[in-house]
Amino acid sequence: MTSDTATARRASTPAVGARRRVVVLAVAVVAVLVSVVLSLSFGSRPVSFDEVVEGISAWFRGEIPTDIGAIAVQSRIPRTTLALLAGAALALSGALMQAITRNPLADPGILGVNTGAALAVVIGIAFLGISSPFQYLWLAMVGAFLTAFFVYFVGSVGPGGTTPIKLALAGAATTAALSSLISAILLPRQSVIDEFRYWQVGNVGRAGWDTIGVIAPVLVVGTLIALLCASSLNALALGDDVAVGLGVPVGRTRIVAAIAGVTLCAAVTAVAGPIGFVGLMVPHAVRQVAGTDQRWLLPLSALGGAVLLTLSDTIGRIVGSPGEVEAGIITAFLGAPVLIAIARRTRMKAL
Rank of each mutant, 00 (worst) to 15 (best):
residue 271 V to I: 13
residue 154 V to R: 09
residue 87 G to T: 01
residue 109 G to Q: 10
residue 143 G to R: 01
residue 337 P to R: 10
residue 289 V to D: 04
residue 208 G to V: 09
residue 209 W to Q: 01
residue 117 A to Y: 05
residue 339 L to I: 01
residue 168 A to H: 12
residue 281 M to Q: 05
residue 191 S to H: 11
residue 181 L to S: 14
residue 142 V to Y: 03
residue 315 I to W: 01
residue 30 V to I: 11
residue 35 S to K: 07
residue 226 A to T: 08
residue 122 V to F: 09
residue 284 H to V: 00
residue 126 A to R: 04
residue 104 P to N: 00
residue 204 V to Q: 02
residue 319 V to H: 04
residue 166 K to I: 08
residue 328 G to Q: 13
residue 258 A to Q: 08
residue 212 I to N: 05
residue 167 L to K: 03
residue 336 A to D: 05
residue 189 R to F: 07
residue 234 N to F: 07
residue 253 T to C: 03
residue 107 D to R: 02
residue 56 I to K: 00
residue 197 R to L: 06
residue 286 V to A: 00
residue 159 P to K: 15
residue 48 S to Y: 09
residue 27 V to C: 15
residue 164 P to W: 05
residue 113 V to G: 08
residue 183 S to Y: 08
residue 33 L to K: 10
residue 245 G to H: 11
residue 75 S to K: 09
residue 125 I to K: 04
residue 280 L to V: 01
residue 349 K to T: 12
residue 64 I to R: 14
residue 84 L to N: 00
residue 8 A to G: 15
residue 128 L to G: 08
residue 46 P to H: 03
residue 31 A to C: 08
residue 109 G to F: 06
residue 157 V to T: 15
residue 273 G to T: 03
residue 274 P to L: 08
residue 18 A to F: 14
residue 119 L to F: 12
residue 50 D to F: 14
residue 5 T to V: 15
residue 119 L to Y: 01
residue 20 R to S: 15
residue 317 R to P: 04
residue 91 A to S: 09
residue 325 V to P: 00
residue 334 L to F: 02
residue 341 A to F: 12
residue 60 F to Y: 12
residue 290 A to K: 00
residue 118 A to F: 06
residue 64 I to P: 11
residue 204 V to D: 02
residue 186 L to N: 12
residue 226 A to L: 10
residue 217 P to S: 06
residue 194 D to P: 07
residue 100 I to C: 04
residue 163 T to F: 11
residue 85 L to G: 03
residue 349 K to C: 05
residue 211 T to C: 07
residue 313 D to K: 01
residue 16 V to K: 04
residue 270 A to G: 13
residue 247 G to S: 08
residue 30 V to R: 07
residue 343 A to C: 14
residue 107 D to I: 05
residue 77 I to R: 00
residue 274 P to M: 00
residue 53 V to S: 08
residue 24 V to T: 13
residue 9 R to D: 14
residue 294 Q to S: 10
residue 217 P to V: 01
residue 180 S to I: 09
residue 211 T to A: 15
residue 145 F to E: 02
residue 150 F to C: 03
residue 42 F to N: 05
residue 126 A to E: 13
residue 326 E to T: 06
residue 48 S to I: 10
residue 9 R to V: 15
residue 79 R to K: 12
residue 275 I to C: 02
residue 202 G to A: 03
